[in-house]
Structures are given as C-alpha cells and as structure tokens.
Simulated scan of single mutants.
Amino acid sequence: MRYLVCLVVGAVIGGLFAMTLANALQRRNAWPRALMNVMQHELGDARNAAKGGTCPSPVLQRASEHLRLLAGDLEPALLATGSRDRVLSQYMRDFGKVVTAWEPGADCLRQAEALTTITNACEACHRDYR
C-alpha cells in the first residue's frame, strides 16, 4: 500500500512538473506566433475586402499600414539577438519589399494581384521555416 501511494504521489508531482515545463516552453515562442497570427488576420481582412469589390477601402488601408509595421518586427521576433540567418533575412526583406510596393488605393484587380504576391512571399518563407 505504501508503494502504491508513493507511486501515485510521484506520478502527480511528475505530471505537474511536465505541465509547468510545457507551459514555459510554449510561452517562449509567444511573440513570433502572435506576430504571424496578426499578419494572417490582416491579410485575410484585406483579401475579403478586395473580393467584396469595395476598392479602395479603409480596411485595405488599415491592413496595409499594419502589415508594413509588422514587417519591421519580423527579424527581431524570429531571430535571436545577435544571430544571423541569411536565407530567413532574405525572405523577410522580400516580404518587406512586397508589402511596401502594395498600393491600398488601387483598383480591385491590382489589389488582388498585390495580395497574391504578399501571400506568395509568406508561403515562400513558410515552405522552409514552418
């Protein structure tokens, strides 16, 4: 009976320790995940607005501003301080160029083309780094 109690107590303490460790490891990547979720949300809103046929719209302008702002945060979010990854940095520069070239005041056809280019820039990086 004593061994059974020790086994149960040990399993409970081990489970609590494992959950604490898993939560700590999950929080380590919170900023990059949050950044990607916000970018995905803004790109989805922009796509919906462009498909809705209301170009230009305030939604497209807001999404453009947010994506330009977030493009500057990619490198600090994804790379550790002082580290360098030539390929990832190139993907981030390409994304920044594509987002900067996007004109949210253009007609819907040009909006769709720009959003497809932005999506392709995202997918190019995700093929190698997801």
Rank of each mutant, 00 (worst) to 15 (best):
L69C: 00
V98W: 03
G72R: 02
A50T: 14
A46N: 08
A63K: 02
A18S: 14
A18I: 10
P104N: 01
P58S: 09
T100N: 13
G44M: 08
L78W: 01
L69Q: 03
H126C: 00
V59Q: 14
C122P: 07
M19R: 10
V99D: 12
R130I: 12
V5I: 15
P76V: 09
R68Y: 05
A49T: 11
Q111A: 12
P56K: 01
E75N: 00
Y3D: 12
R110P: 04
T81K: 05
N37T: 12
H126P: 03
T81E: 10
A34V: 00
A112D: 09
C108Q: 04
G10A: 15
D128A: 03
R86I: 14
V38E: 14
M39V: 09
M39R: 10
T119N: 13
D85C: 01
D107Q: 06
I118E: 07
F95K: 09
E75F: 05
T54D: 07
L79N: 11
V99Y: 11
L69F: 00
R84A: 13
S64R: 02
R62V: 05
T100G: 08
A49K: 02
L70C: 03
R47Q: 12
M92H: 07
R93F: 00
R130Q: 14
V12W: 14
T100D: 14
R68Q: 13
A114V: 10
M1K: 07
Q61G: 01
H41K: 12
M1T: 15
A71E: 06
